[in-house]
Design a protein around this nucleic acid. Structure first.
Lengths: 381, 381
DNA sequence: TTCGTTACTGAATCTGGAC
DNA sequence: CGTCCAGATTCAGTAACGA
């Protein structure tokens, strides 16, 4: 099944081929940037990245007295720290840009500590930001000291590879998902807790394990079943587990061996949904049917009339698939736009034919044609 | 009254003193950076900045009903490149840093078009970010083409002058204001409309006038009566008007003469309420749970069936939060309407799941999820 | 006057396939 | 590549209008 995704991709030497196959539906233990260097150009459909937030904090954590001992001015230290973080960010994002398919998109999550630097670098690299999403935590940790506003959200940046990219966004699915209203940029999701939170001896294994619900929404909205999802900072594998559930292929990269073990354990216990649950027919764009096809196939006859919704106006159907209305000639779209006095109009939604004295939408006839053709093609009666 | 604020401040030559006094409780017409250069070091308590966003709109946009969207087409929002925008941002933020008091804080508002660049530059300049706040619009403009998530928020960065600054944050006031819960980083405020929106001959004067409620919360939370509030991009003066109402002094800078006139007119009609708490409604988060959330959180599982009230009809729940019924796909609402042969229907009141052999309303599951998710936030067990 | 209906609008990076 | 043109696409709220 995985091999399906390989077809048509440009691949380098044999070593790389093997590497990629090995990576697919696995967690690779190692440095994210080094591992990504072994992934071919334009080879993954979706990236979700939860990078380390601020190396400065780590420095302070591991070497608390360095600043004092060396007498280094704090400004310099801060600058160096930002510079290090920017270099690191530029490196891993550059690899992401290279290996992302033209049609692919990337998600990066962060907080105010790092997300502004990340976003600026993404723009500089040519990623085209499509949205920033705020994950609003329904149950955030309070601000114990009462010194600031309760930090109740994290920010996600969603971007395509280039400004001109055609990207996957399952708009209609998300609208149905959201009670028939457009999905907005504010998402209300609880933090990861309870059984979902991985614990060793009662201690949480990972400090910032993301909730599966967040990844569920991301992967559902911006990828198709069978797509390849990459998480370069896999942690305990939430992205991979949800990708697997949703019938996507995945690649995880994680440096910390303890997390890698946890990933593999979670994946072992995760099953994919069966195929029929992964259908997304709402997103399938109906094949274009020129109005002329209706005539060619006898659904509409040259010489009959098309009627406006109120039945008042009527236009003659010519043999070449165009309409004649008063002294005007043109497509179903042009003539309907003229009648409605609008710059443009979708004629499929305007015109009706008379069948047994009743008005029947030509759009229904189009649907019927598509269905009949499909049935014919598949030998269904 | 103004002189009170002058005491104890270091001031340069006589010219500057006069300048500053002239500026206080006024709107200065001119270039923001040039005017700020004339303001002494360490002299303002609070800065609110709403800089150009650099939206990069290229084409005209039409609503589905063919009406044209009146976007931001003003020259002041146009920059040749990211580099130009960064230079501009660095310049005005540098002046802000210089003139801000040690105890002062700064707010900057933006969207994904610019906020990441702004935040990065703020950090580079040594501003210490205290929070990022998301202004969630209760009534945003939809995404008419269905191409992305509806961009329903803007981001504000709140920062102190330095990491070590002692800054003003009226924690208890905010907590009281928020029903005795800590004020969070997600704020729910409608866009500026109705009588508040300034119009000339029925046309909006400023394309991006901010709601007073937003400024009310900012100034109430992070300044004290008598403080000096600066807005370097004053526009039609929302910041200044709210500052005046709340008994703060203010300085506004605005380049466009039409806006300056509007500012002065608004200020003339604004009374200072000093300490009095104004009655801006505190928007409550819409506690709406989309059907998809039930699946994300495991209250309903992909692959199970929803049943009609009589248990006769059943629809399959797909992994993406939509339903499959016979050969039709759609939301819980659409499918239920189809079964009832009605143009529309509330799916929440129609569908049931089976639990222990009994039918349970999905509306009850929604209530349960709501209760579970917000239990922590409200301190409920 | 009241109530229902219609029209209008808002910081928006807003199409895509065939030729 | 660019050009052409079919055809898919909106939510909350205010204001004006008419019965």
């Amino acid at each position: 099944m995985h091999l399906r995704h390989m077809s048509g991709r440009m691949i380098g030497d044999q070593k790389t081929v093997l590497k990629f196959e090995t990576m697919l539906n696995n967690v690779i233990s190692g440095d994210s940037i080094e591992i990504m260097k072994q992934i071919p150009d334009n080879s993954v459909d979706l990236i979700f990245a939860d990078p380390p937030y601020n190396l400065q904090l780590e420095n302070e954590l591991y070497r608390p007295n360095e600043t004092k001992v060396n007498g280094v001015s704090e400004d310099w230290d801060k600058f160096r720290s930002f510079q290090d973080y920017d270099d690191f960010t530029l490196n891993w994002l550059s690899q992401c840009k290279r290996i992302l398919k033209e049609s692919g998109t990337i998600w990066v999550i962060g907080t105010y500590h790092n997300i502004f630097r990340v976003g600026k670098i993404m723009q500089d690299l040519g990623f085209w930001i499509l949205n920033d999403i705020v994950w609003i935590k329904t149950n955030p940790m309070p601000n114990f000291k009462g010194t600031r506003f309760n930090n109740a959200h994290e920010t996600l940046i969603w971007a395509s590879k280039d400004k001109e990219s055609k990207y996957t966004f399952n708009y209609k699915t998300m609208k149905a998902y959201n009670d028939d209203l457009q999905m907005r940029s504010d998402w209300y999701i609880p933090i990861c807790q309870g059984d979902e939170r991985i614990k060793i001896n009662g201690q949480k294994l990972h400090p910032t394990q993301k909730p599966e619900a967040l990844l569920y929404r991301i992967i559902t909205a911006t990828s198709k079943p069978g797509d390849i999802v990459l998480d370069p900072f896999a942690g305990t594998g939430t992205t991979l587990v949800v990708a697997k559930k949703l019938g996507r292929s995945f690649i995880g990269i994680e440096k910390e061996p303890l997390y890698v073990d946890a990933c593999r354990e979670r994946l072992k216990n995760t099953a994919s949904y069966q195929q029929k649950l992964l259908d997304y027919p709402l997103e399938i764009r109906p094949k274009r049917v020129p109005f002329g096809s209706l005539i060619e196939n006898g659904y509409v006859k040259a010489g009959e009339y098309l009627y406006s919704p109120d039945g008042e106006a009527r236009a003659l159907v010519l043999a070449n698939g165009t309409l004649s209305y008063e002294d005007k000639y043109g497509s179903i779209h042009k003539i309907s736009a003229m009648i409605l006095n609008k710059p443009a109009n979708n004629g499929w939604a305007f015109w009706y034919v008379k069948r047994d004295g009743k008005l029947v939408s030509i759009n229904d006839l189009r649907q019927k044609l598509l269905k009949d053709q499909y049935a014919n093609h598949h030998g269904i009666q």
